[in-house]
Design a protein around this nucleic acid. Structure first.
Lengths: 154, 154
DNA sequence: TCCTAAAGTTAGCCATGGCTAATCTTCTAT
DNA sequence: ATAGAAGATTAGCCATGGCTAACTTTAGGA
């Protein structure tokens, strides 16, 4: 599982039969798939950052209960985060965010807050706003995020 | 791959150590993971429905180019759609949506259009609106969708 | 101190959803 | 009518991200 194989590999024939709009649509779907790959990373670094602030450290058991997954799943994903340079750690020891990880966490937290504020601004209840923001935050482009911010100022 | 095993299986210990808010957060993440499972289904039935309307039929080669994936990937996913009751088909023959599939397609199309309209209403360009809607549409609750609609009427 | 419970880890399973290579069908144009 | 191209399928690979079961380490209390 640790073979660094790097295989996103856009299909060679993608868009070959495509009419003008088809390729744009294909790129859209590909972007969504790419977003999915970063979601776990973003969710983890954001949560780890929060836990370190609130509790002084981010224990796998707490990450697991916040994410609603089992500890082995957390361990596996932490290994990926470490492999990809977002955290550092040693067996049985604390988790630290790298600069990359901490920066990403801040960006995510910022985006998350804007989306929640925007949804509240639309009149939604706090619970729905939080819930939907969790799903939306990975799919909002910078342009749209800016539009959300602009709407808040009015 | 065709063993109907049904294994979503919420972790038995989920939220065990959790403080009050923790469980809500965990449920949120679980909901996002569940949404991911339906995404492909929704994207496919929506696209199939569009293709049937526009071209008279939905060929795997066209689905592939619209989705930006290879034909074998399409075939594999069509097998799942068939297994789960959204389409009917025979080898080398046309694809038909079941009632379930067609209904789902309509719901998705409706949601998609509202989101695009809402993003345009916010002042975004058509391309960004389309692009972001693709990612957002699977993560917008009915409440939020209603709020989007309400905002459009003003 | 030392024993036990909690936390962390490893191993191994499974479904999903990508891909390529190779094969098989269908269709079309000569 | 048939050959070759286009489309569809199969087989097989891989990474991801879930899970359980079993084991190891750590840490805390008697």
């Amino acid at each position: 599982m640790e073979s660094n194989n790097d295989k996103p590999s856009t299909p060679t024939n993608a868009g070959s039969t495509g009419s003008p709009g088809t390729q744009a649509q294909a790129k859209g779907f590909q972007a969504v798939r790419k977003a999915h790959q970063s979601e776990i990373v973003e969710d983890y670094v954001e949560l780890i950052s929060d836990l370190i602030e609130q509790c002084g450290e981010a224990r796998p058991v707490d990450i697991a209960s916040h994410m609603g997954v089992t500890q082995p799943t957390v361990v596996k994903n932490l290994a990926r985060l470490q492999r990809d340079g977002f955290i550092t750690r040693e067996k049985y020891r604390s988790i630290f965010l790298t600069k990359t990880g901490a920066d990403l966490a801040n960006i995510c937290r910022h985006r998350h807050r804007i989306i929640v504020a925007f949804l509240l601004h639309l009149g939604l209840d706090a619970e729905t706003a939080e819930h939907d923001a969790e799903g939306l935050e990975h799919h909002v482009s910078n342009k749209t995020l800016a539009a959300f911010e602009a709407a808040l100022e009015k």
